[in-house]
Design a protein around this nucleic acid. Structure first.
Length: 557
RNA sequence: GCGCCUGUAGCUCAGUGGACAAGAGCAUCGGUCUUCGGAACCGAGUGUCGGGGGUUCGAAUCCCUCCAGGCGUACCA
């Protein structure tokens, strides 16, 4: 990656200057390579001299940042990525990339192809990303789209960065909600078959329950009506779970989301893992009986101010009991090096307690990262749409895709940083359909593909990249190369939202290049060949960015 | 009450210590074009970076405080 190379080069120049005694050998903080906002400040810059001057001053040595900068600049080698060097302002060292070096990079990008943008940071470490987990009690409401888009893009980015990533959906099929779901389903099933059967109190009133019930009838006829109600519901549970999971899979596939593993909460009970771990924690003094309930004493661990019930006084375990077993399963049974859980901020209260669970299990809490994201407020007709699965007033992911389109939904949600709350106005999104940045980006991609396709008709000489000297050509090369840094940022922050902004930038810079530089010019075959290869590089970078975001990169539209 | 998050252009949002103009998209206004796909390009205007105080050579960015909104603070998930 370019920035790493620059960083190392600067480090060496500094060391060389210190070794020769031209600069005092003082300890310095980590060297920062910056991206100046202004183009005439170079491609990269560093405040190294300013930092060094401050350190010297502290050590009692008089110093001048500008002369330190000059000294470091004098030790920069020629021939690498660095071209012109300037000392500017109070002592910034501004670095311009060398033109010939930039030209060569185009070939590197094309040679890498779809692998361009991949990094070797992960070293194959086994990571799991768990996202969108929910009760299997119906279609996913729109808020889930943000969780899904974020988790999925995160998994893509981590994979590109060299981690071995497993995508997981945790199916909460063990709790009260799922029992209620099965009981409701039974009632709807009976009703469709003509038997009077009220849905349970607090049951799932949504219309979609009739759809599930109809599917049951299609597959199993009326045979559950022959059974006693309790027995029927018990038998219905696994069948209806499979039904719901299948429809979740279909709904999520429309958003481009696929999982490696659908992990059933109930399996943790079936295997006895929950009991086993509660026993273990009890014997090590982290669980105690209080007021008839069993409590996990989270306050034994740092930053936690509340204990948490694991088994209610009525004998029913809470979700938290299975959460303990679940994370044990992730780290110990399956041996993931690191786990990322993507949660809505409404679960923020559990973050410190999960750290306590990790510690109690003898695991390093740093191996579990919880990415929180703001909730989505859906606006329709200027009014907030309240979401409730139980009352049946939900707007599903599928419905929003119908209105706005999967690519636009993902792009829109991935433009925001996870921290920020989102107000999504359906009318606005639908009305502004053609003005959506996602189409701008996709259009640019289609345009490049069209040029590449057209070029196949013409005979061109082998590309000589030294023809690429136009400012718009060089700007495009720079932007293409930036993808690697953008992937790194996304991994560091565990948020891919910078990539949507990068995609818009890249598309814009390509469009300017397209205006300024005619690619296929019969009069200039050598220039055409070089520009064509640059187009290939741009297509590779743009398609890769979109792929990481989970957005389609159409060749025509 | 306490904790976490958010407050940046008319709207939707980036930027979270660096440079004499604070950025993008949309919207608005003006221009380009006999086009390798005009779903394009070029240009213009718009900001008390929620208010106030502080730290720093340098603050939208760090600290304190206040205001506004969201979420959390259950033997719910």
């Amino acid at each position: 990656m370019v920035r790493d190379e620059i960083q190392q080069t600067l480090q060496k120049a500094l060391a060389a200057a210190q070794q020769k005694g031209e600069l005092p050998a003082v300890e310095l903080p980590a060297l920062e390579v910056l991206r100046p906002k202004q183009a005439d400040h170079g491609d990269y810059s560093t405040n190294l001299a300013l930092v060094a001057a401050a350190a010297l001053r502290k050590a009692g040595v008089a110093s001048n940042p500008r002369s330190i900068a000059q000294c470091i600049a004098d030790h920069l080698p020629a021939g690498g990525p660095i071209g012109a060097v300037e000392i500017a302002g109070p002592g910034f060292i501004n670095l311009h990339l060398s033109v010939s070096w930039l030209q060569q990079q185009v070939e590197r990008v094309v040679a890498a192809g779809p692998a361009f943008g991949n990094l070797h940071r992960g070293g194959g470490a086994r990571w799991q990303v768990e996202y969108l987990s929910a009760n299997p009690t119906g279609p996913l409401h729109y808020g889930g789209a943000r969780n899904g888009a974020l988790g999925d893009a995160l998994a893509n980015v981590l994979t590109a960065a060299g981690y071995q990533v497993q995508r997981e959906f945790y199916v909460n099929d063990a709790g009260n909600q799922f029992n209620l779901f099965a009981a409701t389903l039974y009632a709807r099933y009976a009703q469709l078959l003509g038997r009077e059967e009220p849905i349970p109190e607090q049951g799932y009133a949504g219309e979609y329950m009739f759809d599930y019930a109809q599917k049951l009838i299609d597959q199993h006829g009326d045979r559950f009506l022959q059974l006693a109600k309790d027995e029927a519901i018990a038998q219905l549970k696994p069948i209806s779970e499979a039904l719901v999971v299948a429809s979740l899979q279909a709904e999520l596939a429309r958003l481009g989301i696929h999982y490696d593993c659908w992990f059933r909460e109930q399996s943790l009970y079936d295997e006895g893992l929950v009991d086993q771990l509660l026993d273990r924690l009890r014997s090590q003094g982290d669980i105690a009986l209080r007021d008839g309930a069993l409590w996990f004493l989270a306050t034994h661990y740092p930053k936690v101010d509340k204990d948490e019930v694991v088994v209610r006084s009525n004998g029913m375990p809470t979700y938290f009991a299975s959460d303990i077993a679940y994370h044990y399963h992730k780290f110990v049974v399956r041996g993931f090096d690191h786990v990322v859980n993507v949660w809505g901020v409404d679960h923020q209260g559990h973050v410190p307690r999960m750290a306590a669970v990790m510690a109690a299990l003898g695991l390093d809490p740093a191996r579990l990262t919880i990415v929180l994201h703001g909730l989505v407020k859906l606006i329709r007709n200027g009014q907030e749409v309240k979401l409730s699965k139980r009352r049946g007033t939900l707007v599903t992911i599928g419905e929003v895709i119908d209105e706005v389109g999967a690519d636009a939904v993902r792009f829109n949600l991935l433009t925001r940083s996870p921290d920020s709350p989102v107000e999504f106005d359906l009318d606005l999104a639908a009305a502004a359909n053609n003005e959506n940045p996602v189409f701008f980006v996709q259009y640019s991609h289609a345009r490049i593909c069209s040029i590449l396709a057209k070029a196949e008709e013409s005979q061109l000489p082998p590309p000589d990249l030294s023809w690429l000297v136009h400012p718009s050509e060089l700007a495009l090369i720079r932007k293409v190369l930036e993808l690697e840094e953008q992937v790194e940022v996304a991994v560091d922050k565990l948020s891919p939202h910078n990539l949507t902004h990068y995609a818009v930038d890249l598309a814009k810079i390509f469009n300017s290049f397209y205006r300024d530089c005619k690619v296929l010019d019969p009069e200039q075959p050598h220039l055409s060949a070089a520009r064509l290869q640059l187009c290939q590089a741009a297509q590779i970078a743009l398609a890769k960015t979109l792929r990481l975001l989970g957005i389609s990169a159409p060749a025509s539209m």
